[in-house]
């Protein structure tokens, strides 16, 4: 691979990795929302990164600028200050907005297909491929029949040009 191309690919992957680690590089949390207690604030950030903004729907409330997201961020912090556990805060949101508010869908009978469907399809596909390969006639798997003298001569002529 050419060095220039390699450099571009490398920098791209570093860039993507940085975003994967910190998807909320763009801050939506305003200074006035941040709690004085760094431990509580860290928990609040962690919880709100997993809660969906109901207005934008594909953003977490931690990274959304929508007014409702701000209200929910403040509410998360209020619940934490009041002594709720992380799960209690999430349950509070789910009681109002349903499982949809959780960016990571919970594992329960309704979501089994979501969680296990891709694996099941992969296993089914692998089974199909395995069956197909086993049933294929041995001849094609064992390679073609050797060339007869006439074919060898023709091949030699072609290769010599």
């Amino acid at each position: 691979m050419r060095p220039a191309l390699l450099a571009i690919l490398l920098s791209l992957s570093v860039f993507t990795a940085a975003f994967a680690v910190n998807p909320t590089a763009a801050f939506a949390v305003n200074p006035d929302e941040i709690l004085d207690d760094p431990v509580l604030e860290a928990r609040a950030r962690d919880i709100s990164a997993g809660l969906r903004c109901l207005v934008c729907q594909n953003e977490s409330i931690d990274s959304s600028n929508a007014p409702l997201a701000r209200d929910l961020r403040i509410l998360v912090r209020e619940r934490l200050v009041a002594g709720d556990s992380d799960d209690q805060v999430r349950a509070f949101m789910v009681a109002r907005y349903g499982d949809f508010v959780l960016l990571k869908p919970p594992l329960k009978p309704e979501t089994y297909f979501l969680w296990f469907g891709p694996g099941a399809i992969l296993v089914l596909g692998a089974l199909g491929v395995a069956l197909y390969l086993r049933r294929r006639p041995a001849a094609s798997a064992g390679g073609a029949a050797p060339l007869d003298p006439e074919e060898k001569a023709r091949l030699a002529r072609l290769l010599d040009g």
């Binding site: 007014p67 409702l68 209200d71 509410l75 109002r96």
Partner: peptide, 13 residues
């Protein structure tokens, strides 16, 4: 005015 009652009703807009 704060939108808190709306949140309790599950209002998203």
């Amino acid at each position: 005015e704060s939108g808190r009652i709306g949140i309790d009703w599950g209002v998203s807009g």
